[in-house]
């Protein structure tokens, strides 16, 4: 992958930014996310998590299976303020 290939399209994070995060100590998807915002956008990493994991595996020389999925945080699907607020009336 080229350095300037965009991995996370929602937040426009490049491969090089992810490699830099790994050089600075990120060892998993969550660590990359905190340092680069990859996976923090609208799709919440559904598209880019696999590629981020591949970059991690290559840079840290570990098998793909060594990486856990990032913790899924509520809401699992985006929900509007209105719908979420209404839930508390039920």
């Amino acid at each position: 992958m080229e350095d300037d290939t965009i991995v996370c399209r929602c937040e426009e994070v490049t491969v090089e930014e992810i490699r830099k995060a790994i050089r600075e100590g990120a060892v998993d998807v969550t660590g990359v996310k905190r340092r680069t915002r990859a996976g923090m956008g609208l799709c919440q990493g559904r598209t880019c998590e696999k590629i981020v994991t591949q970059v991690l595996a290559r840079e840290l020389q570990k098998p793909l299976s060594a990486f856990k999925q990032a913790t899924v945080q509520a809401p699992v699907q985006p929900i509007t303020f209105n719908l979420l607020a209404k839930a508390s009336h039920d």
Binding site: Q44, P75, I79, T80, A85, S88
Partner: peptide, 18 residues
């Protein structure tokens, strides 16, 4: 979410992603 709408009613159709 309910408290946010009390001050910003126009937020109603904006999505919460996380």
């Amino acid at each position: 979410a309910r408290r946010a709408l009390r001050f910003f009613p126009t937020m109603r159709d904006i999505h919460i992603i996380r």
